[in-house]
Computed example of a mutant assay.
Amino acid sequence: MRKLKVLVVSVLLVMFMVACQHKSQKSLNKPDKYTITYSNLLDKKTQNDVAKSLSKLLPAEDINLFFEQVNFYNQHIPTDSLVQSDYGTSKSLIPIYDIGAISDKWSNHFPLFPGYNCRLTTFQLVKSMIKLSPTLPADDSLLFIDKEALVDAPAIYQVKPEEQENFKILFSAVATENINDTKIHLEKVQEYWKQQGVTFAKSNVTMVSVWFHDQLDGVATKLFIGHVGMLFPSEGGYLFIEKISFEEPYQVLKFADKKALHDYLMAKYDTDTSGSTKPFIMENDRDFIG
């Protein structure tokens, strides 16, 4: 039933859903100019290493819940195409996972619950660092599968009602002008978050979000977070936690510096050659220039 819904939704909503994945599997699986280093957190040693890096940055209960969700996901899918231990490498921006087998097995277990995506995963990790005092209703019209996930989630993924509202506000679509000027678009996001009282605690943990411009409606154009993850320092570099999409695996990627992460995200998501507005990246509520 859920797959049928995806097939019949509007072009806008389909575009938004896949934005938390990738634009073109064919283009992303061609050799890139650099190799990514990543883990799918299957083994306890890698989990413990990541947890240790996070232990002084996030509440223990949020760290523990994250790994419980990771293990729950990994226990309910075939893991043959995932990195079995430590970190692996890929010469494509999206490692080649057996998505068909993963999707089928997950759907057999959970016909209504689509899993967690990049937004829900990141929110669960960074929610303690973000405060909100909203003055406006959220535009959650593009969060249609996210909201399904919140309703149909098994116990380990349940989110408190007040946190669900904060999630919708943080990931709300933001009204903007129909122009190709990322500076103005970024300012629109900053203005909206200021109106909603969104503030980020000073921390070495940051939320890195990739913003897209929905121009399908020539008048009421919107900005939305198409992909997001959590960045934090570790062993002389950085680790970036992301959930590629609802059904695709959790990933932790290693980067030498922030510029490397910026280049990775732009290579994945700046794939539109139609002349539309380029995506832009924010670190918390600031421009992320790498």
Results as ranks from 00 to 15, higher is better:
residue 86 D to Y: 13
residue 279 P to E: 04
residue 39 S to F: 03
residue 204 N to L: 10
residue 50 V to T: 07
residue 201 A to E: 12
residue 153 A to Q: 06
residue 95 P to M: 09
residue 287 D to V: 09
residue 284 N to L: 03
residue 104 D to A: 15
residue 287 D to L: 13
residue 256 A to N: 15
residue 59 P to L: 08
residue 111 P to T: 04
residue 225 I to T: 15
residue 290 G to T: 11
residue 86 D to L: 13
residue 13 L to W: 03
residue 232 F to P: 05
residue 131 K to L: 00
residue 222 K to I: 00
residue 257 D to P: 08
residue 258 K to Y: 01
residue 68 E to R: 11
residue 255 F to R: 12
residue 199 T to D: 04
residue 72 F to R: 03
residue 95 P to W: 04
residue 203 S to Q: 08
residue 223 L to V: 05
residue 14 V to T: 14
residue 81 S to N: 07
residue 172 S to T: 13
residue 254 K to W: 13
residue 82 L to D: 06
residue 109 H to S: 11
residue 38 Y to K: 04
residue 117 N to D: 14
residue 35 T to E: 05
residue 69 Q to F: 00
residue 281 I to M: 00
residue 254 K to E: 14
residue 101 A to F: 02
residue 105 K to C: 09
residue 199 T to Q: 06
residue 232 F to Y: 13
residue 123 F to Y: 14
residue 183 K to V: 14
residue 19 A to C: 14
residue 159 V to C: 07
residue 29 N to W: 10
residue 69 Q to Y: 03
residue 145 I to T: 10
residue 148 E to A: 11
residue 32 D to N: 11
residue 212 F to D: 02
residue 56 K to I: 00
residue 26 K to D: 12
residue 205 V to Y: 01
residue 122 T to R: 04
residue 80 D to A: 14
residue 229 G to F: 10
residue 113 F to V: 02
residue 26 K to Y: 13
residue 221 T to H: 08
residue 260 A to I: 00
residue 125 L to E: 09
residue 177 E to K: 12
residue 249 P to M: 10
residue 108 N to G: 14
residue 82 L to M: 14
residue 166 N to T: 02
residue 287 D to S: 15
residue 187 E to A: 13
residue 114 P to G: 08
residue 43 D to N: 10
residue 76 H to A: 08
residue 259 K to V: 13
residue 234 S to W: 00
residue 238 Y to T: 00
residue 239 L to E: 12
residue 128 S to H: 11
residue 61 E to L: 05
residue 262 H to S: 14
residue 267 A to N: 09
residue 91 K to D: 14
residue 51 A to S: 13
residue 140 D to Q: 11
residue 190 Q to M: 04
residue 156 I to L: 09
residue 189 V to N: 06
residue 276 S to A: 15
residue 215 Q to V: 13
residue 86 D to R: 14
residue 153 A to E: 05
residue 92 S to P: 08
